[in-house]
Design a protein around this nucleic acid. Structure first.
Lengths: 205, 205
DNA sequence: ACTTAAGGACAACAACTGTTTGTTAGGGAT
DNA sequence: ATCCCTAACAAACAGTTGTTGTCCTTAAGT
């Protein structure tokens, strides 16, 4: 299951092709230092090759960035879709989705968490491609939220932005050892579902 | 009121000192392109001087970054403190604080919105200084949240992170013309206060 | 065993990075 | 009228950036 990732397209590849390792190294460093602060030489060094050699696999740094980012959306989309497959209740679906979202972000895969980085300050050409990729994932949450029984005066888009804001912002403060990703996601969904009113109406569960 | 900003410390300055313009140009570009993608020459050009000349005002790029960032925390702290001064009710105080927060972010000052940029991927030396500055602002919200009547099973820290996550994430999607900063802030506070339960218990106000 | 292309090493590129240097025009106080 | 210091210019610094071309090695197909 590890040797067919992302070679969906075509072409003959040798068994010692290191495209995957390259992407993993890139994702790791992008997370650690950000896109700009990570040089092609840094990535190559971590992957055990020279900078110029990477241009066999990726025509430019931007293409490498896009590839890792899209791998991130692919993985997290897969996880969320799987998590809500058999759930019917709209609120439950949202909760399971949020939990899968968080567990994927902090579950060891270095790709999905790239989605949490703010891309609004990157170069326009690159940004457009990344936004495109993320939008397809966001629409998944949009559907979940529009399935909720909402008060008429609440904009579902604003609601999605609030939830995803809370969840994604966690990438800047989450550290293993405290609350688990599952706990965090469950609380954040509970917040927008029940609020914090201590009137005893909602103190159960 | 515009000529005494940030010259609180000491020293004789000439009336044509352009430190302020320099900081404004820097903040503008930092917001637009991010720290790394903004070169000293870019900033100097926007301010109408040469790169080397900036080193009279700031000993390094990091110092310039820190100065603009701290100006941002100063301004937003001022706005929030002012907004909650005469409010007593804990929930009202939180709401007014969130509203002041958002209005300052998008109110035209180019400094405060720097607080919304994710700094977890910047160079460690710089990051420490920025975190220090932001923590002092965050503690303001921590106090507001700890004053709320909270259920025992809700971690106030997690609550603060959820709210500030929602609010700050808006810097990546907010555009004038849609919902106002005030509306957005009010909704986000209402969410964690009442939730979205459509059981009619909380549909008043 | 031979051929071919995949995969990568290596060196060099021009452009750009933050920073430093030496120097100078001019405002402010004496 | 003098002198100091602010504020900026202009040019250069050494290092790093993404990228490219050329060359070599090696795995796979026949």
């Amino acid at each position: 299951m590890a040797n067919s990732i992302d070679k969906a397209e075509d072409g003959p590849y040798r068994s010692d092709n290191r495209r995957q390792e390259l992407m993993a190294s890139a994702a790791h460093l992008f997370n650690q230092r950000g896109y700009d602060a990570t040089s092609m030489r840094d990535i190559a060094k971590e992957a055990g090759m020279l900078a110029g050699s990477m241009y066999y696999h990726f025509p430019s740094k931007d293409d490498l960035i896009i590839a890792t980012y899209e791998e991130g959306t692919r993985l997290i989309t897969e996880a969320v879709v799987e998590a809500i497959r058999d759930i019917q209740d709209p609120w439950d679906r949202l909760e399971k989705a949020a939990i899968a979202h968080m567990n994927t972000l902090f579950g060891g895969n270095n790709f999905s968490i790239l989605l949490c980085a703010d891309i609004s300050r990157t170069a326009p050409t690159l940004r457009i491609r990344l936004i495109e990729s993320r939008d397809s994932y966001d629409s998944l949450f949009m559907d979940l939220i529009e399935s909720l029984p909402l008060p008429a005066d609440v904009d579902p888009t604003l609601l999605r932005l609030s939830l995803l804001g809370s969840l994604n912002w966690s990438s800047s403060w989450y550290r293993p050892g405290g609350h688990s990703p599952t706990q965090i996601a469950a609380l954040f969904v509970r917040l927008i579902r029940e609020g914090l009113s201590t009137t005893d109406f909602h103190s159960t569960q």
